[in-house]
Each structure stands twice: as C-alpha cells, then as structure tokens.
C-alpha cells in the first residue's frame, strides 16, 4: 500500500510551498527587504498598480539581482529533477542523473570551450553538444543499453565526468589571466551568482519546452518501466523513443548548465523523494518533481549565498551535502542486488 497524500493534494501543497519559498528567498540577504517590497517591485515592473514606491536601490536589488537569481534557481532545480527522473527510467537505473552520468560535466566543458573562443552567443548550444557527447560516451562505455547494470553505467559516467571536469579546469586555467579558481568552481560545482534575466529566459525556455515535452510522454515512459521487451510489445518503438528522450534530456541539461554550471544531486534526490509520495507513474512523478526540484534548489542557493555572507559557497556543495547521503542510502538499499 502506498502511504500518504493523494497526488493532487501533494501537488497543491508543494506548489504553495514553492510560491512562498520564492518570495521568502528574495527577502533573504544583506539588504533588508520585506515580502511586501517583493510584490511592490514585481507589480511596478509588470505594470500593475504598485502599492507603494521603492527606493531605486532596493528596487534594483530585488529586480536586477535577487528575482532573476531566485527564479533561475527554481527553473534549474525543476529541469534537473525532470532530467534525473527521466534518465532513471530510460537507462533503468536508480542512480542515473545528468551529473553522475557525466552530462553536466560535458556541458560545462562545451560551455567554457566557446567562452574561451569568445563566442558566448553559442553558450547553450555548446553546452548541449557537450552534454550529448558525454551521454553517448558514457552509454557506449557502459555497454548496450539493454544490458546496462547500474554500477557499470555509474562508473562509465564517472570516467566521462572526471575527464570533462579536468578538461573544464584546464581550459579555464589556461585561458584565465588572474585568479581562475572561482570560475573553475562555478562551472564544476555550480553557481547561480551570475544569474540575470537572460538566464531566466534560457532556463525558462528549456524547462518550458523540453520538460513539458517529456512530461507529455508520460505514457511511453511508464511502459519503459516494464522492460524493453514488454514496452516493445505494448507498441513503443523502444530504441528510437529512448534515444529521442535522452537527446531531450541532454538538451535540457545543456541549457541548465549554461546558466548555472554543473549542479549535482538534484536529479538524483528529488525524483526518489517524490516517488515515495506519489509512486512511479510519470504523469505525477514529473509534475511533482518539477515543483519539489524548484523548491529544493531555491533553498540550496539561498543557503549558499546567505550562510557565509558576504562569501558565497558554490551551490553544488550544498546540494552534495544533501544528495550524497541519499546516494549512499540508495547504494545501501540495493546492496547484493547485482554486480
């Protein structure tokens, strides 16, 4: 028997928590801002009757710094959670996630490569190409998709991810003139410090189009849970559908990494937590994962910038502190299941 809330109640509750988190996260920081100020700024900028006028300084902090950052965090969290959930189903591996399988690392490498070449317009495209290359490399290394074992896949992802991380660090080190470590950390561990409205646009389009597309494919994704033979007998073109959706995941990962660097463990932790509440059916799983993933990263990023203010932790350190124990727990629960 499944415990807990009906799916609609869980979703409504999670959505309310996300909304409240967005507002509260914007108020947290060195400049004292009240929730009412957040509403006032938003109202002012979208042309609604504003309940009062804010000083240009506060308005700038809310509208130019905190809002784009918090919204980008929410979008990246939502996208990573969907990417993780879909990968876990497609490669039939509870440990799959864009970070562990090396996609995020590949995307970072692609991104810094075009930055060095000075063509930053291509940043999301290069990150996508990097993610796709890493995906193909990891899955080829792991063996045929039908016979993938979880440990082989993770090891292959680790090899690809480490190589990409070394490449990323080297490219930054080689090209930077001064202190490159901050930049290296930002790409390897993720950072939302540079988030602007353009980041919101990139992440928003990626999540809006790709994550929605994947959520619409819930039925084929559900069939994948039965195994390739049964899915095929249920009318799913198994390899074509798998590759199409994996490419979509790479696209999503590329766009997210382009704005935030490689943030780990969101795609691993969130879907597992959500499955405990609403089960493995993808319609509910993906819907709730977006909301929970968004909330998770909003708080992780808020912690990253507020805990040691004015210094900032890379947000990936916060997500790893939460996610790595979950990873360990999953390994522990699966002990003795397969090589």
């Amino acid at each position: 028997m499944r415990r807990g809330l009906p799916a609609w109640a869980a979703f409504t509750l999670a959505a309310l928590v996300l909304l409240a988190s967005l507002v509260v996260a914007v108020t947290i920081g060195p400049a004292g801002i009240a929730p009412a100020d957040v509403w006032a700024t938003i109202a002012h900028h979208v042309g609604l009757p504003a309940p009062g006028t804010l000083s240009p300084l506060l308005d700038g902090i809310v509208w130019e710094l905190r809002l784009p950052r918090v919204i980008t965090a929410a979008l990246v969290g939502a996208g990573l959670a969907v990417a993780g959930a879909v990968m876990q189903t497609l490669v039939r591996n509870p440990l799959a996630d864009p970070y562990l399988l090396g996609l995020s690392g590949g995307a970072s490498l692609g991104a810094v490569a075009v930055l060095v070449l000075g063509i930053s317009v291509l940043l999301p495209v290069a990150a996508f190409v990097g993610a796709l290359a890493a995906l193909v490399a990891a899955l080829t290394l792991a063996g045929r998709t039908s016979t993938l074992t979880p440990s082989r896949t993770v090891l292959a992802g680790l090899a690809v991810g480490q190589l990409a991380a070394a490449g990323t660090s080297f490219v930054i080190f080689w090209s930077a003139t001064g202190d490159s470590y901050r930049s290296i950390l930002a790409w390897l561990m993720g950072s939302l410090a540079g988030a602007e409205w353009s980041s919101v646009a990139i992440a928003g389009v990626a999540v809006g189009v790709v994550a929605t597309g994947l959520a619409l494919a819930s039925r084929p994704l559900d069939a994948f849970a039965l195994g390739d033979t049964a899915a095929s007998a249920l009318g799913i073109p198994v390899s074509r559908a798998r590759w199409a959706m994996l490419v979509a995941v790479a696209l999503l990962t590329g766009a997210l990494v382009a704005v935030s660097g490689a943030i780990g463990f969101v795609g691993l932790t969130v879907p597992h937590a959500v499955r405990l509440v609403v089960g493995g059916g993808h319609r509910r799983l993906l819907a709730l994962s977006t909301v929970v993933g968004a909330t998770f990263l909003v708080w992780a990023d808020t912690a990253a910038r507020a805990m040691f203010a004015p210094r900032e932790l890379p947000v990936g350190i916060v997500t790893a502190f939460v996610g790595a124990p979950v990873f360990a727990l999953l390994l522990w629960r699966r002990r003795g299941r397969e090589a």
Binding site: P94, A225, L226, T229, A230, R275, G279
Partner: peptide, 8 residues
Amino acid sequence: GGVPESMT
C-alpha cells in the same frame, strides 16, 4: 516480465 519499481 519486468517488475516496475514504485508502481502498484
């Protein structure tokens, strides 16, 4: 046949 995890 495959046993879907987290499915009733």
